[in-house]
Nucleic acid binder design. Structure first.
Lengths: 253, 253
DNA sequence: ATGTGTGAAGTACTTCACAGCC
DNA sequence: GGCTGTGAAGTACTTCACACAT
């Protein structure tokens, strides 16, 4: 691929597609499971099945990292685990702060997947003074006033926002001002950040809405298949559950 | 799936791209906020800014739904809210069950965004007998034995899995067998489902790993840039590039 | 024989740019 | 004049299919 005309010259062949990056953690998880079962090698076919993708995609993805497989044999599990971990930056320790220790923040703090892969919860921060000192997942919650100090002292570059929507942007601004350059946002808001700061969002209600869209379509098709002779007009109603026909109101914070 | 055909024949012009569907909830949220402020109309430019996308994309997205705007004027907020809600299937009521009432399950049960947009938590289900009867978010937790009955009685077609990884597939199988056709999976596992069942996954650790990848790259470039002309402060000299920051050069220090 | 690595072909999505309507 | 709606152009990602290393 000599094209390379896209964004930048790129330091090297460091042009891993975003879609590939997003799948690397998936491969890594599957490989880790194999590693734990002491499986020495896997084929692209097997690994792809375990990760829920197709094998051509997987091979193409790996080709961006280098030629880590052996033709006629497959991939060495341990070696791949290492290479992917390194590529993702998981061979180093990433201190993370979680801001907003409500239900969700607590769930995140307790989530094993964090600690197990290079991430370390450096601090839990909440604006409620009543929370201060209270341990969650074995870590005492600190007051939001300490935010800047905590970030600096721990060299935190990744922040997780689990506050109500209204608090998210101000918290984000403070995180960024204090030096955080990557943010994982669970609050249902669009965050504005300066150039050079990465934001990823996880939005529970959006995922559900996407499911509802497909679900509705299924119901529609099913009905069309049943009646056979009555689709064709404008949007038909999907019978089955009581249609409320209301326009929802938004939530608070 | 050997047949060359794409997913579906598409009943009509009902060929809304998946990427567009994924953004509709975003637009809907922005529109709802405008609606609450009694803003009567918006331009694609304004709405796009509020939703965090560019205006051409937004107009293209809306063009798949129909021509709901007025040239020279913009879009009628209320009307769009209704149209998008309808397209997403949010004008009907979707009963949802949440399985696995740990930290995360409880967070989900309490999450306002669910109830506010056509989703109704029909039941909370957990395998731990000690949880049974305990109210979470005002809803008493029911034992997993009741799962099939609950799904049937409530006509549930959307299930949320918030169990530990090991329990996810069995729970998924039972949900599907009982009639659920859409699943939102929070457990860090690849779920296998029969054709016709939709699964979306939300994976906290994957998101963090993607951030770590970019974070690492920033650090690397920064080090490389250090040798060159050390710019002062958060400013990138690299003209412009993609929509999202991809060529950063900032330093917390 | 077997399974990787990869050009080339195919598909999906984004952005441009401007005609057309208000 | 302003702003939508959309063909056309551009870009990103996926899948195919097969040469080639083991």
């Amino acid at each position: 691929m000599a094209t390379g005309r896209t964004h930048r010259p790129a330091t090297r062949s460091r042009g891993i597609p975003e879609a590939t990056v997003a799948r690397l953690p998936l491969y890594l998880r599957a490989l880790t499971a194999l590693s734990e079962r002491s499986v020495p090698t896997v084929s692209s076919e097997e690994l792809a099945a375990a990760a829920g993708v197709n094998s051509a995609k997987l091979r193409k993805d790996f080709s961006y990292l280098g030629s880590y497989g052996t033709r006629g044999v497959g991939y060495d599990v341990e070696y791949l685990v290492y290479q992917i971990s390194r590529e993702l930056g998981l061979t180093q320790d990433w201190p993370v702060v979680i801001v907003g220790i409500g239900n969700l923040g607590a769930a995140l703090a307790n989530y094993g997947g964090f600690a197990s892969r290079g991430f370390r919860v450096a601090a839990l921060i909440d604006a409620d003074p009543a929370m201060a000192g209270k341990p969650v997942a074995g870590i005492p919650v600190q007051h939001a006033d300490e935010l800047e100090k905590i970030i600096e002292d721990n060299g935190v570059s990744i922040g997780v926002i689990a506050t109500p929507a209204g608090a998210a942007q101000p918290v984000c601004d403070r995180l960024v001002a204090a030096g955080v350059t990557s943010i994982l946002n669970f609050a249902p808001t669009v965050l504005t950040v300066p150039d050079g700061v990465d934001v990823r969002k996880v939005d529970l209600s959006i995922e559900l809405q996407i499911l509802a869209f497909h679900e509705q379509r299924k119901a529609g098709e099913e009905a069309a298949a049943e009646g056979a002779a009555q689709a064709a007009g404008p949007r038909s109603e999907t019978a089955d559950k009581g249609p409320d026909g209301d326009v929802p109101a938004v939530m608070p914070a």
